[in-house]
Design a protein around this nucleic acid. Structure first.
Lengths: 206, 206
DNA sequence: TCGTAATGAAACGCTGACGTATCATTAGAG
DNA sequence: CTCTAATGATACGTCAGCGTTTCATTACGA
């Protein structure tokens, strides 16, 4: 259930260097889990503290207040996703990696969280879209243009491709209705999406 | 700002028949707005009461408790969406109506709300998917099969079509980044999605 | 070696929200 | 006409959670 649950007999006093680093990460882990499960309003600092084996004292000294903790957790998820969607050379390979990354637990959690709080924090939603979907579409557009030089409306095709790379499986992931796909499933999904967008005929295979 | 904000000099005592009906609807309107904006945990009964021009007394007598109010609001949104996605005869016409309905404020609010609370209420998420996306996919599959008899893997094509009918515009709607499309925009979007799924060539136009 | 920084443990004040109860008032039913 | 049901206005008890503070304790830096 909870891997980092309570640690009742924690030593008191100033922690060692390595402990301090791990502590901060443990707090963010616990915060991410709580935020994903209960949303911002439903998450309690004491719950995070208990789950991370820390105390409110430590959390406040690291993150100032509740919004600070929330933003730090979201920022970390952002970085994870961006690392998983970096460009490559082969369209099919990149598409498959996008499928795997975006259907993973971290990306789905981030996506769900940003949607849930989008009314409260419109800036966060805009930032998410720019750094996430919009950036992925750009990556796909570049590869599409390279592999299919005579394709028109490249950006629109790239957007359709991105939409299909998520598709209903991703919606069901957002709703918590099914687990992440396997690597093989992700590749098959990516191939199918590419074929659909390129018009089944394969339009000018490079 | 708020159309139904406070009504300080409301008459006391038992309301007339028509008043009682309108009151219940006003409470659900206010609850829906608050839930969409702040989520379940962030919504307060007193806030709903103030916004609806009612009192907690009335709300509790109608809906028992906070979850009861939440479920009633979600149920009403569900019915609205289902009314807007009923079957028709023409694929293009039905697809365009799906685009218009699902990009509308009510459907987007419902979608966002269910995603936000999906961890807390998995049953709600499953119910939403069955009554919403899954049902729409079935409607589309029936029309696809009728208009394109030699199309294979009809259900998979219908699912792709549904995904494209939402697409990135719908994701941006969920994130609150853009307004609902116009009727003309929805029709163009539907046509483009159909063309993409049918392979651009138009595959056996009926 | 010694002072300082960072933490644990625990308690505190405060605010806000849920759900209930009381009293006054008015529409509807018999 | 009388009695009841449903509401407004208001206050209340209770509890949870935020952010702070105090004291004890331990690693780190000069």
């Amino acid at each position: 259930m909870d891997t980092t649950t309570d640690r009742p007999g924690a030593r008191r006093g100033r922690p060692r260097r390595d402990e301090a680093e791990g502590r901060r990460a443990a707090i963010l882990d616990a915060a991410t889990a709580q935020l994903a499960e209960h949303g911002f309003a439903g998450t309690t600092i004491e719950g995070v503290a208990a789950s991370a084996g820390a105390t409110k004292r430590t959390i406040y000294s690291h993150f100032t207040d509740k919004p600070g903790l929330f933003l730090a957790a979201v920022e970390r998820l952002h970085r994870h996703e961006q690392e998983g969607v970096q460009g490559g050379d082969d369209l099919e390979e990149v598409a498959a990696r996008i499928v795997r990354t975006l259907h993973g637990d971290d990306a789905v959690t981030l996506h769900r969280l940003v949607i849930a709080e989008s009314r409260q924090l419109p800036g966060l939603a805009a930032d998410f879209y720019e750094r996430g979907p919009a950036r992925s579409v750009d990556v796909l557009a570049t590869l599409l243009a390279a592999e299919h030089p005579d394709l028109d409306a490249v950006h629109e095709h790239a957007e359709e491709l991105y939409t299909l790379l998520l598709g209903e499986p991703h919606r069901r992931r957002l709703l918590g209705l099914e687990p992440a796909p396997t690597a093989a499933g992700a590749l098959a999904h990516a191939r199918r999406a590419i074929r659909t967008v390129l018009g089944r005929s394969g339009a000018t295979p490079a």
